[in-house]
Design a protein around this nucleic acid. Structure first.
Length: 973
RNA sequence: GCCCGGAUGGUGGAAUUGGUAGACACAAGGGACUUAAAAUCCCUCGGUAGUAAUACCGUGCGAGUUCAAGUCUCGCUCCGGGCACCA
């Protein structure tokens, strides 16, 4: 008997497959295509750890299955090799990044090859290859021509350690994603791509991607961050005519200055109590003369500028601001004059850099409290049924204004509460407000009537107006109540017995402070109590409009479009949409990237490099060190930088900034289709055949970076007719990370990295492949366990022995005579394995194969055809062992040229099944019956069972539930 | 704070979408083979009670719907991920 010598077998087949070009993809075949893609790796110096191949194994399994199912499969691999780590390493070790790259790629490739992937290495690409980045530059030029690439001088994210500008997507919590340094805002010239032009399409087209991982779609939605609202104009008025010269007055008359404000809550406009502008707002400079405390204001602006974004956006810090004295704004809804403030919690780069503030936003509320700015409310919450008392359709609704009074005992820390007799209401004292009565007076009157206590002091109003609609049984009506809450302290115990009529509905009692919250059942009472205990909180949700003139009583959603329309007619507002997504800062002041193909001419200005001159090759430099001046190291190479203008032939300089690492990966998947084309980035016919990518697998960390950028570029390429479909990736699945055995990320830093080479050496590539797929659900992250590998290896050894020890007999339809169990089980296995690969449930596919193998090992004779087909099912997971056994069985051609087996549904159905018999839903017996047994028959059998009789005894059978093939349930109680 | 996921034995995880909870594996314990070890094979393996048959309990917690809930509904708790002064 031959031993399972995986090392020898795996090496042998890897060589043979490569020699036979088994995985070379042909273009124009008559077969349906299947393009399956991995996110190509960045070849770092550390090499691969066992977590990296997880996604590659999955795509390899799918690719091999599709191949066997008769698809023309494109399954390529390449290198995303530009970028900072290679450059930083090169600087440190004085090697050229290109050399570094070549070494790293060689390591990566040899590691991958040992795992036995079916990549077509003829299509290997490398983003740093001039023949590749020629086309990256070409795409940039097309964008430039369409106005989508532009120069900007706005302040951008600057990493002081990497000494380069960065895009928003390159930040993590306000720090550099690469080196963790705090990011500064630095104004500098930079190239920017107008990704915001595509924001709406990128958002909407997510709908066209039903096969994308939902979590990734959600992340993209949040990243694009669309909010719909309105742009509102607040007219600026100068309030200090008297103290200024006549010149100013005349100037002021012509001012007609507005502060434009973006809001998503126009329904709160009537309560807009002040306007806040960001420190960078241009209004400050414009009103230099009119702002009375300009020195103070400019001092605040400077301080804000000196803060990093991280400091400015620290949520913990106290909000600060300065009022612009001498300046007022006009609330466009009610023409009230309101103050204008400057504060750094307002962001200059979002919306218009100015907001209106009111009582319905936590930040505004906090800010107003701190600086004593008076607030009014414009929205009240609406509760429908506050305590199991939903309004009834057949009753009429009566409106009433209510008070609720929280009353504190004159000596003890106890509060007077009501327990209502006819309902589960538990509240403080509640009563109506009579005509012309104030809230406070109503509260005092109600307390006297309902509690009997006479002397008290009103302390304060609590919280905000609340509306509720509920059924009031004691009045037999639906009540629509507008309730305000007052906090009152009793002065002494003087008491007059209440009239019976006033207290017939409830019992009053004193409740200890700590028990009040538990006692109360009515929502409004609980909210008021919470506010009394824990401090004021604004109501920030949508509700019912109050204090809003003609809009009173509408819901927020009803009112918003109406208010916009009303203001729009007056020229004071319009609909507006805002996105969190910012344009893509596309230049890096570093060496190791694609040169931006632009020439700056002294006469003609910015001139694109003519397409015929592409690629603009990255020149050799002596030092790759960043200059830190905002220029890339390329600026030092005089004979490269100095060039002639392609337009006027005059003196000109090359653009010295390079592209970010994300550039090449934004379109690389198209190049695999036609990797050696020197006429176009991809041949049109080939693109039409292969594109879009059918299935894309990679890490979720790319959700808001690579996957956003690639979709943007692809849509642009679609717009200029380079690709045939608007989305690059039809189906997207994210890989769950493999963590180290200690639960941490695998990293040199923790010394917990496991190298796949070692695992392949000790257990074999096939075992590693099977294990990584068996660990758990594919998308879920899980901890590596070298012990767990043993199970995978045992399984493969078992398969090996099966074919060594058992006798395989061809049976020509007589398989049933050899074994009754194998054929049905095998057909079930075909079904399960195929479906599970399709849905990425590799763990259960493997478990099904294990079940099959376990069953086989109980038999001496096995049907040959089933066993051969089983090898085909196994081959995507463990290609080497499958191919070896296949050959040992006498086949000359590769197993991967075979056909994926089909299952026969009739074979799967069991003729005899175990029917579960339940009494009252509990399993009491199991009976072997034929699968198509009728209800009457099973009932007979069930009643005949002693076990069942025991549970039924003499009780009457009230109900019978019969689920054919599954369950029979007798209900006796 | 907001938006997504999750929570099932000692462990990783199954469960045909409401129908036998714990498949498949790992670990552990016991046994067979062996001079011995490794490998392999067999048995046990959610909890409690019992020699056992069996009974009761059991899918983060609390309610609910149903003949029947890991699965559906409502209300919480905890964990993971993303976003975050986004007006």
């Amino acid at each position: 008997m031959k031993d399972y010598n995986f090392g020898q077998i795996e090496r042998k087949w890897q060589d043979k497959w490569s020699k036979d070009s088994l995985y070379q993809t042909q273009d124009s075949e008559d077969k349906p295509k299947y393009y399956i893609l991995d996110m190509f790796p960045y070849p770092s110096g550390a090499g691969l750890h066992v977590g990296h191949p997880k996604g590659y194994i999955a795509t390899d399994i799918v690719a091999r299955m599709k191949m066997l199912q008769g698809y023309n499969v494109l399954h390529p691999m390449g290198w995303d090799a530009f970028g900072l780590p290679a450059e930083n390493f090169a600087i440190k070790n004085k090697v050229h990044p290109r050399e570094m790259n070549e070494r790293n790629i060689a390591t990566f490739k040899s590691q991958l090859e040992k795992i036995g992937f079916s990549y077509d290495w003829n299509r290997e690409i490398n983003t740093t290859d001039p023949e590749f980045y020629k086309w990256t530059q070409w795409i940039f030029l097309q964008m430039f021509k369409k106005g989508l690439a532009y120069e900007s001088y706005e302040p951008i994210n600057w990493c002081p350690s990497c000494q380069t500008g960065l895009a928003n997507e390159d930040l993590e919590d306000g720090r550099c994603e690469r080196c963790d340094s705090e990011i500064e805002q630095k104004p500098m010239r930079q190239w920017v791509l107008k990704i915001t032009d595509y924001a709406e399409r990128m958002l909407n087209d997510l709908e066209k991607l039903p096969e994308w991982d939902n979590s990734i779609k959600e992340m993209q939605k949040n990243w694009i961050g669309k909010s719909e609202g309105a742009l509102v104009k607040f007219e600026v008025r100068i309030s200090n005519f008297d103290s200024n010269s006549n010149d100013l007055i005349s100037e002021n008359k012509n001012l007609k200055l507005n502060i434009e404000v973006f809001t998503t809550r126009i329904d709160t406009i009537f309560s807009a109590a002040f306007v806040v502008v960001a420190p960078e707002h241009r209004l400050i400079e414009k009103l230099k003369e009119q702002i009375e405390n300009y020195d103070e204001v400019i001092d605040y602006v400077k301080k804000a500028k000196n803060k990093t974004d991280l400091q400015r956006t620290d949520l913990e810090k106290d909000k600060t601001g300065v009022e612009l004295k001498g300046i007022k704004a006009i609330n466009p809804a009610n023409n009230k004059e309101i103050p204008v403030w400057i504060a750094d919690f307002v962001l200059g780069y979002y919306g218009t850099g100015a907001v209106f503030a009111d009582a319905h936003d936590e930040r505004d509320f906090e800010f107003a409290k701190k600086y004593n700015i008076p607030l009014t409310e414009s929205i009240a919450p609406l509760f429908t049924g506050t305590c199991n008392d939903k309004p009834r359709k057949d009753k009429k609704t009566v409106k009433r204004r209510n008070i609720e009074a929280i009353i504190k005992h004159w000596e003890k820390d106890e509060y007077f509460c009501l327990n209502w007799k006819f309902n589960n209401w538990k509240s403080f004292i509640i009563g109506g407000i009579e005509k012309d009565e104030s809230i406070e007076d109503a509260a005092i009157r109600e307390i006297k009537e309902e509690s009997g206590y006479q002397n008290m002091k009103v302390i304060k109003n609590i919280g905000y107006e609340m509306h509720s609609e509920f059924f009031a049984p004691h009045k037999d009506i639906n009540r629509y109540a507008q309730r305000n809450c007052v906090y009152i302290e009793l002065l002494d115990g003087e008491y007059k017995k209440p009239r019976l009529e006033d207290i017939k509905n409830h019992n009053g009692s004193w409740i200890k402070k700590e028990e009040v919250d538990k006692f109360l059942t009515i929502k409004e009472s609980k909210i008021s109590w919470d506010i009394l205990q824990n401090g004021e909180k604004p109501f920030t949700k949508k509700g019912i409009l109050i204090n809003s003139e003609q809009f009173n009583g509408m819901t927020s959603d009803e009112a918003m479009p109406k208010i916009i329309e009303w203001l729009r007619k007056k020229g004071l507002a319009e609909k507006e949409v805002n996105y969190k997504l910012k344009d893509w800062v596309f230049s890096r002041q570093r060496y190791w990237g694609e040169p931006i193909p632009i020439i700056h001419c002294e006469k003609c200005g910015v001139v694109p490099v003519p397409e015929k001159d592409l690629p603009v090759v990255l020149p050799e430099v002596e030092s790759y060190e960043p200059t830190g001046t905002g220029e890339s190291p390329l600026a030092n190479i005089k004979d490269w930088v100095n060039t002639k203008c392609p337009k006027c032939d005059g003196k000109a300089k090359r653009e010295t900034n390079t592209m970010p690492q994300w550039a090449g990966s934004s379109w690389y998947y198209l190049r695999y289709i036609d990797p050696h084309n020197d006429k176009a980035l991809v041949d049109k016919d080939k693109e039409k055949y292969w594109s879009p990518v059918d299935f894309y697998v990679g890490g979720a960390e790319h959700a808001t970076r690579h996957l956003i950028y690639a979709r943007f570029w692809h849509k642009f390429l679609f717009d200029i007719g380079m690709v045939n479909y608007e989305e690059p990736f039809i189906k997207l699945q994210h890989v769950g990370l493999i963590m180290a055995e200690d639960g941490r990320k695998m990293s040199k830093r923790w010394g917990n990295v496991i190298n796949p080479d070692d695992i392949v050496e000790e257990f074999g590539a096939d075992a590693m492949r099977v294990y990584e797929m068996f660990m758990g659900p594919f998308a879920q992250s899980c901890d590596w366990s070298t012990k767990g590998l043993i199970g995978a290896k045992r399984f493969l050894e078992k398969v090996w022995r099966l074919f060594q020890e058992k006798e395989l007999i061809s049976c020509e339809g007589k398989c049933a005579e050899i074994s009754k169990t194998i054929p049905p089980l095998f057909h079930k296995t075909i079904k399960k394995v195929g479906e599970d690969i399709e849905s990425m449930n590799f763990n259960t596919a493997i478990s099904q194969m294990m079940i099959f193998v376990n069953e086989c090992s109980c038999h001496k004779l096995l049907p040959k055809s089933a066993m051969e087909n089983f090898l085909i099912l196994l081959s995507p997971f463990a290609p080497h062992i499958a191919e070896e056994i296949w050959t040992n069985l006498g086949h000359e051609k590769s197993i991967f040229l075979e056909k994926w087996p089909e299952f026969n549904p009739n074979m799967i159905k069991n003729k005899i099944i175990e029917m579960v018999i339940q009494v009252n839903g509990k399993v009491r017996d199991k009976i072997q019956v034929s699968a198509d047994i009728s209800e009457t028959e099973i009932k007979k059998k069930a009643l005949a069972s002693e076990k069942i009789q025991k549970y039924i005894s003499n009780q009457e059978i009230k109900k019978v539930i019969f689920v054919p093939g599954k369950i029979f349930n007798l209900v006796v109680e």
